[in-house]
Design a protein around this nucleic acid. Structure first.
Lengths: 189, 189
DNA sequence: AGAGTCATGTAAGCTGTTACATGATTCG
DNA sequence: CGAATCATGTAACAGCTTACATGACTCT
């Protein structure tokens, strides 16, 4: 299983609705898992049927009602079992890498553009993660926070996300530069 | 679509059978896409029905016969269209990150072990990719090769894989260290 | 007035994983 | 003699994406 554990981990921090998770999956937890709203609604319904989360209806006057979920004891046990089971290997799965792989055989112009767009997007995410990290650690410096902070899980995963995005940005810029120079050299077909 | 383009990109380098692709997906192309043999056989059959690849039977005496595939003109056109279409954003999707996220709420011992195993696996992959890169660029140094080499696509994607694995290894070691120290500090439940 | 946000879902289709099945050859 | 390699698939299931559907409220 997959998404279910990401959802359970996200819900350890408090109560969230499907909608809130769908938003939040773009920051915090989202560094390492993404999901569309539809999938989250479906997964929450399934987790509730299995008794791993509990939902309660929150009536709102000016907006549609929502259902907030929290992890049950059974859900926590499920997460613990998951943590002890072997992990599947991680890998990058990325359209752009496929395109770069083929870049010397097919046209490079579009690929260069996409690399540059990606670099910009990565930079934006770096800023976002930097702000999130500062916010999570508060006044403390990083070392101090990691030694004594209460909730460091999210911080640690954001650190991974940050270096990933930095490498991603640097690679995109470098490859775009290399391909551009090669275009300038031999005449582009 | 997804796997189909990774397969087409891999087949640009020459003729391969499903079995060979399944092996090769663990090196080269595999830095950014992985697939099980079953999926490759299915995808190759589909690509052939659609006329994007062509297979030819190679009769072998001492081993089972095999079918070697190469990309057709239509397949190349398909790849070119793919390269010009916008790419989906890339993200890490990793069980271990889910576990680290929850690590301060559930038991950490198993997670620390897995982080250390991962670091070892990452190190092995780093060695492998380093060797592959040296082999691809031959005698030339990297800058020279990237300026004038014929087939640099695979090299560029391996570079991405290499830094990814290095960051992955470093992160695993650092997080394992942090979690271990915290275990030593406050008594483990 | 139109776009965007809050809020939740269903249904269909595509992609990916796991289990099962076969059979000869080579290596230790 | 047993395990691994070469070589190809089928079938069932799980997971993910895309399209469709609804409806009130808020901001420009």
């Amino acid at each position: 299983m997959a998404l279910r554990h990401a959802v359970l981990a996200a819900l350890l921090d408090g109560e969230y609705s499907g909608y809130q998770l769908a938003k939040g999956f773009d920051i915090g937890v989202a560094n390492f898992w993404h999901a569309l709203p539809q999938q989250l609604y479906a997964e929450l319904a399934k987790l509730e049927r299995e008794g791993l989360v509990e939902g309660r209806e929150v009536v709102q006057e000016t907006r549609p009602n929502k259902r907030l979920f929290r992890v049950t004891a059974a859900g926590r046990a499920e997460l613990e079992a998951f943590a002890e089971a072997p992990s599947k290997p991680s890998f990058i799965r990325d359209d752009l890498l496929v395109k770069v792989q083929a870049a010397d055989r097919i046209g490079t112009t579009a690929v260069i553009e996409q690399l540059e767009e990606r670099a910009v997007a990565a930079e934006a995410k770096i800023q976002l993660l930097g702000a999130l990290l500062r916010q999570l650690r508060g006044d403390a410096d990083e070392e101090e926070f990691l030694r004594r902070g209460e909730r460091i899980g999210g911080y640690l995963t954001c650190l991974r996300g940050l270096t990933f995005e930095q490498e991603h940005r640097d690679w995109c810029r470098r490859i775009a530069g290399i391909l551009r120079e090669r275009q300038a050299g031999h005449v582009e077909r």
